[in-house]
């Protein structure tokens, strides 16, 4: 059910996004930062689920809060003539890589342990056969 909701949300978003009006070029930078922040939250959420400490409230507030905060910070940076968005990108993308590494390790260890189990079962069967 959760998976279905995600898929439906993605498809609806893509369809409406195709027909939605374009963002003025001046503001497309802000939107890009917000997207990166949201993506970071999504990967964080997946990693948290794998670690079994996923909290919906934390996830939702992180998703929207990070996006809005990063937009505000970028805006502030524009006013101060400091490229704050670079810092935001470094932080978010760095965290994204961290979370991706966690996800990768989780599945890798799962895969290797499964393989070892299979090998153990096979070797056990073999010894049984030879003992017969």
């Amino acid at each position: 059910m959760i998976l279905m909701a995600i898929v439906i949300g993605c498809i609806l978003g893509a369809v409406i996004g195709i027909y939605a009006p374009l963002v003025p070029y001046t503001y497309s930078g802000y939107l890009a930062i917000a997207i990166i922040a949201a993506l970071d939250s999504v990967f964080g959420g997946i990693a948290a689920t794998l670690k079994k400490n996923f909290d919906l409230k934390v996830f939702v507030t992180g998703f929207f809060g990070n996006a809005i905060l990063s937009i505000l910070l970028t805006f502030l940076g524009e006013k101060l003539n400091v490229d704050i968005y670079l810092a935001a990108i470094v932080v978010f993308v760095g965290r994204m890589f961290n979370n991706l590494a966690i996800i990768r390790r989780y599945y890798l260890s799962k895969w290797t342990s499964k393989k070892q189990e299979n090998e153990q079962v096979e070797s056990a069967e073999k010894t049984e056969e030879t003992s017969k």
């Binding site: 909701a5 995600i6 439906i8 949300g9 993605c10 609806l12 978003g13 893509a14 409406i16 996004g17 195709i18 939605a20 374009l22 963002v23 497309s28 939107l31 890009a32 917000a34 997207i35 949201a38 993506l39 999504v42 939702v60 998703f63």
Partner: peptide, 14 residues
């Protein structure tokens, strides 16, 4: 679902 919707809509527009 709503979050995915928001994320994809923003991504596609961008």
């Amino acid at each position: 679902g709503i979050m995915c919707f928001a994320l994809t809509i923003a991504t596609v527009i961008q």
